[in-house]
Design a protein around this nucleic acid. Structure first.
Lengths: 335, 335
DNA sequence: TTGTAGGCGTTATCAT
DNA sequence: ATGATAACGCCTACAA
């Protein structure tokens, strides 16, 4: 039986409201009584019950964070940013792992509202129409992460994936690569990775190269998966001179497949990634990739949520963080 | 203004107790009334408020999970197991990231109790004495993960780290390695990694090799860190013929440092890891490592917590899962 | 400045 | 089988 505000009140010889006032400093209390109450709190080790508090305040000090894969290192680093900023403001994290499944995402979104979370940070691979609808009219602060939403009415924090992919593809082309493969996520219009695809396309078009759909493959962001995709390239003898993987992990999967099949990187094939996770600059060959301020993406998203909770006006609801093309060892000029 | 049980009762023309009974099937309700209530619930989209429920039931359907580093892939996979099993039983996760800091760990533990979590899954690098005390007398179900506690009064789920490290070291020695370095976590007695150290020591002793403390280094489980440690070996010209890193990530950091300095793996130096994360079998050279059933560790821990919550008797409170020595490319017989 | 009392949404214990 | 009603622990008008 844990100690309650009532016990404190009794022990201090004051009313419940008074105790409430000193713990919340919501209204003035004579410093004499305050001291007395504080002392009792100290002695008894009393802690206000957050659940009861949530019930009456309709707040929970909880932020719901829904992600498609906790074991993805990119997501893990974003979570670090979210957690750390959240902690600064006294918010805790209710974690939801969806595996990118729409039903799960919807289920969790409902659950989170029921649990009175004060804000939601959302990340997914495929932003289905249903989700967009839901997120556009939800009545609690939401931030979409890693996805630009300038065309939607949902706040978001991400880099400019389109521009970044464009730069990367352009870089490869200007290094003499005429056959550039792209490994991105699934085909759907609303899938994360569409921006990358469009950036890739733009670069190709600008350089008068036609898009060979045979070279655009759809992965699931896993190492193992891109390994298999590259194996297909090899088996089908359509191996390009450069492979642009939409994540570093997929790039590494690709490189290993190439190595296992007797190809050299970057001598035979250039392989570039996206995200710049820590492994990218340690892996051998070091990955040419797009640097994202991963931690910051999470941090900024959380800060945005906190601001909204506090009713502070936030200027732009679509925040685009800077990215950078990191040219390292896994790509080569073949001109 | 969300709809409450009261609204449903009124709309269905029954008492709130009746509504409560149909949503919980706690007591018989005439099927006629049940249908009526169900219909109103359907129409109104009523969802019981979990917070109010928590308050009266003193339960929250929440499991607190505290980990030292979310972005660590090993931990990420454990979280997958925890989450998935938790979801099966209707439990959600309150995630706490501590960076392994004792103050944070203690703070979170208190917070979790206050939030009425029904169970706690705990993981840390250093199991400080204070934590042991706290965990031994906490009044809610706890499971320590990735750490054998046969000498403590805390339930746990892990592999036999001692035996695994022993096998690995023995394997290296029997492959002709007389100078085997160990990169493990910090020096403290209670640090995770002590079991590995002891296993390592036993193997050396059994083979009449003396322990050269110069070859035992203390890392922080990060890639970058073990890279630096190996650099020290090289600079100090005490490079051994084999390096046993206490995690795959550290092994990869070690290998990359060797490669960057002109050494070949495993020709010049054998490097082995621990955990068998996915990357281990994709990385080149494939890592010789200890396979842990990572996902299962999380899953079993969660199942254990659920059982305890339900008051089911669980046999052994210290669960040891099987491990396996995976011999791959990063190690070599030099006899 | 302090205390009283009502209410937050549910569950559970009584009667009926 | 059903319905009042008292908790659960806390906050907050409203009174004093």
């Amino acid at each position: 039986m844990s100690i309650t505000i009532k016990d404190v009140a009794k022990k201090a010889g004051v009313s419940i409201s008074t105790v409430s006032r000193v713990i919340n400093s919501s209204k003035p209390v004579s410093s004499e009584i305050r001291q007395k109450v504080l002392k009792v709190i100290e002695e008894t080790g009393y802690r206000p019950n957050p659940v009861a508090r949530s019930l009456v305040m309709k707040k929970s000090q909880l932020i719901g964070v829904v992600v498609p894969d906790i074991s993805n290192v990119f997501i893990g680093e974003i979570l670090n940013g979210i957690e750390e900023i959240g902690k600064m403001y006294g918010y805790d994290i209710l974690l939801c792992n969806t595996y990118g499944d729409l039903e799960e995402e919807l289920r969790y979104l409902n659950l989170l509202r029921a649990k009175q979370v004060e804000g939601i940070i959302f990340m997914t691979w495929k932003l289905e129409e249903k989700l967009v609808e839901y997120l556009e009219k939800i009545d609690i602060p939401v931030a979409l992460v890693n996805r630009n939403t300038s065309n939607l009415h949902i706040p978001s924090v991400s880099i400019d994936n389109f521009e970044a992919a464009y730069e990367m593809t352009k870089f490869l082309i200007e290094n003499g690569h005429k056959k550039v493969a792209l490994i991105r996520s699934s085909l759907d219009q609303n899938a994360f990775g569409l921006d990358q695809y469009n950036g890739y396309k733009k670069a190709l078009e600008e350089h008068g190269l036609e898009i060979n759909e045979e070279l655009v493959k759809y992965g699931n962001w896993k190492l193992e998966n891109s390994y298999e995709i590259v194996k297909e390239f090899i088996d089908e003898k359509v191996l390009p001179t450069a492979i642009f993987a939409a994540s570093d992990e997929m790039a590494i999967g690709a490189i290993n497949c190439l190595l296992d099949n007797g190809y050299k990187v970057p001598e035979d094939v250039s392989v570039v990634g996206f995200n710049d996770i820590k492994l990218a600059s340690i892996y051998r060959p070091n990955l040419t990739t797009i640097h994202q301020p991963i931690y910051d993406i999470g941090a900024v998203a959380m800060r945005m949520i906190v601001k909204k909770i506090n009713g502070e006006e936030i200027g732009n609801h679509v925040i685009t963080l800077p990215h950078e093309l990191m040219i390292r060892e896994s790509s080569k000029n073949i001109e």
